[in-house]
Amino acid sequence: MTTQTLQTLEARDVHISFGGIRALSGVNMKLRRGVVFGLIGPNGAGKTTMVNVLSGFQRPTSGTVNLDGADASGIGPQKMARAGIGRSFQAARLFRDMTVEQNLMVAAFGAGLPAARAARAAHEILEWMGLAAAAGKRCDTLSYGDERRVSIARALALDPAFVLLDEPASGMNDAECDALMHTIAHLPARFGCGVLLIEHNMKVIMGVCDRVHVLDGGRSLAEGTPVEVQNDPTVRRAYLGEKAAPKSAALF
């Protein structure tokens, strides 16, 4: 269970523009501990940019990122990590010449844990995720699915108050994906953290998330419970187009 006291991670009116291209325009979202928060939207909607903003990798052009209400915009990824924001990457980005266990240890030490506790935390996380057998393997020998799971395990080793997972199941087959989503759904109960989940598969996200936020073209389209979002007319229009969205159509 995490030792972080952080309760909320919040983006307020975040704008991002890359040389004239607006990646995000006035996005607001608030993540709470213990909640799985889904972030969906078509390609190019700004989902990964949002994760980069929330984890300190991308400074908002305007607007703020707040930790328990205090402005933390621009403190950078390393301090964000230390403040309790863990993240995974779409491209796993493991330390490939290290063992799985060492990958977790980097994060556990990064969070400031003493050696013995860091080792125990790493061990427990690997055990819980069913990766204990891979602990001593070098990461460049892992299967694709294991790589993705280690990437999540490493984010958890940071002892985070929030983990931001950027398409953790991409490239996995259905069975692997189901198992992973089961794991993700249980993260708040096991680690006491909040979760931000980006995922393309709507069915999956509706099954796992407590709240869902829809982005489209860098703007917030809707936010609510999965059922509310499913029934939101603007969301239906964005996904199916004006005419193709009769009320009876099963969107998800």
Partner: peptide, 9 residues
């Protein structure tokens, strides 16, 4: 990996 290291604090 510099980026991943930063994300690990």
């Amino acid at each position: 990996d510099e980026v991943a290291a930063a994300a690990c604090g």
